[in-house]
Design a protein around this nucleic acid. Structure first.
Lengths: 87, 87
DNA sequence: TAACATGTTTCTATTAATAGAAACAAAATA
DNA sequence: TATTTTGTTTCTATTAATAGAAACATGTTA
């Protein structure tokens, strides 16, 4: 996982969210950006209490994909879980 | 691109590279982590002057994939380009 | 308890991503 | 200039990811 650590280290050195966003857009492929964005919406809707079937039909993703996202939310120690509230 | 901006904003709030790394591991799928890590190695080897064919055979990726990575490097304004030197 | 809504998993056909090969372009070198 | 190396693009067969459906599990409510 050394590569991801290096990437993480660079990200921490970036000053603004605009720089982080630019960095991610450079590093990620278009389809990855689309996938990750959709996953983010899934996590937010789960966090807001939407049912998995609502999310599935609204975001047009399969149920199994939503369930996968739900596993992150269930981990109370997950960093994402803490920050989802504030968005 | 609003979702990626939100993600970027949260990332800027994280204190350490360890937290950023954990956040990314939560958000990304296993195959995305593998792909991105490999892409990172491609960028580093390009930055060090390796030829595309060397990179292709050493990392076992197709040439067209390396060429795609090379396009990032060629953009002198890219944020990634600046930081690749220091790694 | 029965009926219903929701979460989760598994399966398969479909779609998207990729490798590998090949061809061509561009650059370097002799 | 001719030759070689390297970069880039295109093509197709193969592989991996996904949706959608279905089935089952787990609540939840009347």
């Amino acid at each position: 996982m050394k590569n991801l650590e290096e990437i993480s280290e660079i990200i921490t050195k970036l000053k603004s969210k605009e720089e982080v966003c630019s960095f991610l857009l450079e590093l990620l492929t278009d389809s990855e950006v689309i996938d990750i964005s959709k996953r983010w919406r899934i996590l937010k809707m789960l966090s807001c209490g939407s049912t998995q079937r609502e999310i599935s039909s609204e975001l047009k993703v399969s149920l199994c994909k939503v369930t996968r996202g739900a596993k992150i939310i269930k981990d109370k120690n997950a960093i994402i879980t803490k920050y989802l509230k504030g968005v």
